[in-house]
Amino acid sequence: MTLRTNTIALIALFLMAGCGRPEGSGRIVIENKGSDTLVNVAQAWAEEYQTVNPNLAVAVTGGGSGTGIAALINGTVDIANASRQIKDSEMAQARANGQEPVEHVVGFDALAIFIHNDNPLDEISLTQLAEIYGEDGTFESWPQLNVEVPGCRDQEIIRVSRQNNSGTYAYFRGTVLGDGDFKLGSRDMHGSKDVVDLVHATACAIGYSGLAYANDEVKMPCVSDGTSCVTPSVEAAIDGSYPIARPLFMYTNGQPTGAVKEYLDWILSDVGQCIIKAKGYAPATTVTCDAPSA
């Protein structure tokens, strides 16, 4: 589906020979590229925006945060999507190219820690997580966290992780493991939902995934950074009190104007924010939405 819409958007782009500029027909194309985490949301926004402004087409492509930012530096996109902040080196490159990337936070992605419902553990610290997941960590069994998990043979901690090129994996490594490596032997799932499903089926398991994938069949302990323990929630992700939440960004070249500004304003409006919420991320602003239909 994504691919097809992408293709249509791309064809539309080629037909119009030019980006971000009004054409004779009055149609405008906004080029939007970057993060794979955001690509589904960006796609949903682009589709929905057709009903708001039929004269504007948004061409969305993925490729990763780095790809999007590189394209912004080269001046070939109007909006770059990123699930990480722009690096200083990229900022310097952009300035050297006469671009001035401006950051817009369009949503948040909170990483929840998942354990089995029978697990009595109620809170976990970032240090403990590093002991469990990190290459130099020493935690191998639940009693080391002062809990006894019923139904868990040998009290062994079954680590559930993600495949090594996932953005979630990279974020977890950067924030929790201080850019160190993961301990070998974790079960590396190929999707956030698989992590939750496996934790649900396995009493000994611990896993991490976006908060959007939480359900009643798994338990989420609160996460502490050494001071206070915060239960993962959309609100805690927004106010920054939850220690493992990352903002999701869109970058424009200079303060947005015209159609790009209208589009970004619409994304940050209640309608746009309800779409990102329906896609399973925390919105950047407080919104009340109808039951998510996605």
Binding site: N164, N165, Y169, A170, R173, D179, G180, D181, F182, L184
Partner: peptide, 8 residues
């Protein structure tokens, strides 16, 4: 040790 994406 299959760690192809390790930063270190």
């Amino acid at each position: 040790r299959w760690a192809p994406t390790s930063n270190k």
